[in-house]
Design a binder for these strands. Structure first.
Lengths: 232, 232
DNA sequence: CGGCGGCTTGATCCCTTTCAACTGTTGTGG
DNA sequence: CCACAACAGTTGAAAGGGATCAAGCCGCCG
């Protein structure tokens, strides 16, 4: 956990205590599930390596990705309302997580109050991300959605300590389209336009940000920055 | 606070203690602000009477409503990540809220651990609502969006102890359209179709649910229920 | 009564979806 | 090691749904 977001704001001895209890680090292969919608919650999870998607499935089988989780981020807090998960979570690549069992969490929170606060902070952050997604889906063209997604995604990668200007997108076009409320063909066309404008280069999975300012412009920013600048 | 959701799960003496501290009940007129995006957070709020909208404003002045808050619900948790609000909140009608000052909250949470858990629960719930909104905006037609909104909205009214089959919509068509990622003309047309199908009757602000099953069908439900059945 | 704002209705246009064909990459088995 | 299958992504053409523009309606308040 040491290098992750969760312990931020804890005392060193508290981190040690946390470390002793959180021994559950699990390796997860691509496409493997951590839990399903409706499951009784066992734990919340911190991403160490890799990335995950949260999604909901309708009765008619249509699914909708509602969240993407990068290293240092927490997920599973959807179950804190009533102990039942309301999304399913699946790895998008070979990944590694820390599980923080809910049983332990309750006890720990009493001994280490700042831990509860930290979980609260991460949940609030996820809420804001979801609000931003609402805004993204609200009234934006296909190209804006894709460009804005890339802006935010690279910012989040940077926050997670990952390469942000040239990297391997673990997210398939299909998943990306789904997340952005578009068809995969539309996403493909948006990528083409962004390539033609010199904003990016992209092969199957390797993505390179060539001109971040042009990308921001395509995302509909007047000027200025993406507002992902949470200070740690 | 007594009749609200927040104290659920607290001991009677804890509720009394909470009651003593939460004296800040404020009356809010329609369109009045509680806080703005960027403000340093003073408190989180519980709706007692009325309703509120959360929204974000882009640099170019375009705004997007991302949340709606009914009696018994909490809002303002967007600021728990870094003490700064990331949405603005405005009353949609004459309303009444309890403010729970963050300064007090920290101290209280230590004395009453279940209070922290309760705030956590309500935040998780808001997160799920936002995920549901993502799903709503993702791949649904205009009519489905409006019908589904009405299903969820009436369910939430019921949970809040309000009349759910015939009531006054505090939300303007403009706001509703914005929330649902549509144009106001499109919402108007969706209403017309739902009226013609006998699902609802609607004048300027009075709304009546005439046939909930037909409404659910228009919302794209195969069968079954809206999944707002959080148990208190 | 008259005018304003919120809402409705109509006509046209445009962007995204849809359907379909094609390309290219990955990986597997002969 | 190559052939070929299978899959992910790209590109094109046509269709449809919502946006946009414009006009009209109606309830409300001065």
């Amino acid at each position: 956990m040491r290098e992750l977001c969760l312990p931020a704001g804890l005392q060193p001895d508290e981190v040690s205590e946390l470390d002793r209890i959180i021994q559950k680090r699990q390796q997860v292969r691509s496409d493997e599930y951590l839990f399903h919608e409706g499951d009784v919650a066992q734990a919340i999870y911190a991403v160490r390596i890799g990335s995950f998607k949260s999604y909901r499935v309708r009765e008619d089988g249509v699914w909708q990705i509602v969240g993407i989780h990068l290293p240092g981020e927490l997920f599973g807090m959807d179950a804190l309302a009533d102990q039942h998960h309301r999304v399913s979570v699946q790895a998008m690549e070979t990944s590694n997580v820390c599980a923080l069992p809910l049983a332990d969490l309750a006890a720990l929170t009493i001994r280490i109050p700042s831990l509860g606060k930290q979980v609260m902070r991460m949940t609030s952050r996820e809420l804001n991300t979801s609000y931003e997604n609402h805004e993204l889906l609200g009234r934006r063209s296909a190209q804006e959605r894709v460009a804005l997604f890339l802006c935010r995604y690279t910012d989040r990668r940077r926050n997670s300590g990952l390469k942000a200007d040239s990297f391997d997108m673990a997210i398939s076009r299909q998943d990306l389209a789904n997340y952005l409320g578009l068809q995969l063909e539309t996403v493909s066309r948006a990528f083409r336009q962004l390539k033609d404008n010199g904003c990016i280069t992209a092969s199957r999975s390797l993505l390179e940000i060539k001109n971040i300012d042009a990308l921001r412009e395509a995302a509909g920013f007047c000027h200025g920055k993406t507002d992902y600048a949470y200070h740690h």
